[in-house]
Design a protein around this nucleic acid. Structure first.
Lengths: 171, 171
DNA sequence: GTCGGTGCAAATGCTTTGCATTGAT
DNA sequence: ATCAATGCAAAGCATTTGCACCGAC
């Protein structure tokens, strides 16, 4: 019963993430209830930490961040919760190529698209109406019903180009 | 870092106008020579099998197909060769979400985009000029240099919709 | 004749799972 | 009081790597 938005964060960060927090919790809670699953402190902590990351995250990174804040959760629980959050439509797997999976918040957000620098790994997030329109057009063209999309541009940033020029070796 | 193709090799021809592409074998051979690596029967077999698959493929599937044809290669060699083919710009990792990696031929091909049915898994391949233009526009906007892209639409096909209606089970 | 390549098996490293215990409803 | 959730450690899997032998250049 003592399940309010987790105890007291040391420094309430200002900005959109905080606003998004309450609604997402209830979305998750509702989903869990519909599946006859329980809303536990661990699950709440994990969702809140993801919201505060407010970006692409990896499991290890998330776990470290949570530990740093004194939340004790096992990696297994994070994996189990991530699966639930995916099923609930709150997060999704991002499409980076690295070995470790990257996830991102999607609930209530316009689809985020990424442009990644192939040299530095730095990336820029954007979202583009034209792309959404294009998606609709293609779906209509085949008689399919659009649900979502992913778009990632591979490119070379100015820094990447510079670094490329400097170090002409590269192992 | 996450991404790393496009590194040392003598930059494979970027964006060739499709059409008549030189035999992929010679492209690969040229790449290998440039890296002081050898063109072995195993590597040739693997590339040829990939060409004949002419589509998205997974490692196990490729290995089985090769075995079926009497080619004896180890999985380790396939993995090693796949890495070379990626560096040579001949194949790339496709972005399906399954556990196993999917690769696809890209050399000399216009970027392929996919629309996947979330219910049936069936997918449609397409490529769209408008998307390429959009990519250029966004790169220019940030001062980055386009290299490639990936676009995948998640949608519901008519069959998927139908199947969804029929089987009302699913917890 | 040199190195690099190959197969095999062992090693990785991310993710999942079995089990005993803890805890939400 | 139930039955799901958690933590831990072991198990799974796709992928990588060490090593001894083989073969392309």
């Amino acid at each position: 019963m003592a399940l309010e938005p987790i105890s007291t964060p040391p420094a309430p960060p200002a900005g959109p993430p905080v606003a998004a927090m309450a609604p997402l919790c209830s979305v998750f809670r509702r989903y869990l209830k519909s599946q006859h699953l329980k809303y536990t402190p661990e699950r709440a902590d994990i969702l809140n930490s993801i919201i505060e990351a407010d970006n692409v995250f990896e499991v290890d990174q998330l776990l470290m961040e949570m530990r740093r804040r004194g939340h004790r959760v096992s990696k297994a629980t994070i994996y189990r919760t991530i699966k639930l959050l995916q099923d609930a439509g709150i997060i999704t797997l991002a499409l980076f190529d690295s070995k470790q999976s990257h996830f991102q918040l999607i609930y209530g957000k316009a689809p985020r698209d990424y442009m990644v620098c192939m040299k530095t790994g730095k990336y820029i997030e954007f979202s583009d109406d034209e792309l959404v329109a294009l998606r609709e057009r293609i779906c209509r063209q085949y008689g399919w019903e659009p649900v979502g999309h992913r778009f990632q541009i591979y490119a070379m940033s100015p820094q990447g180009r510079k670094r490329m020029a400097e170090g002409a070796e590269e192992a």
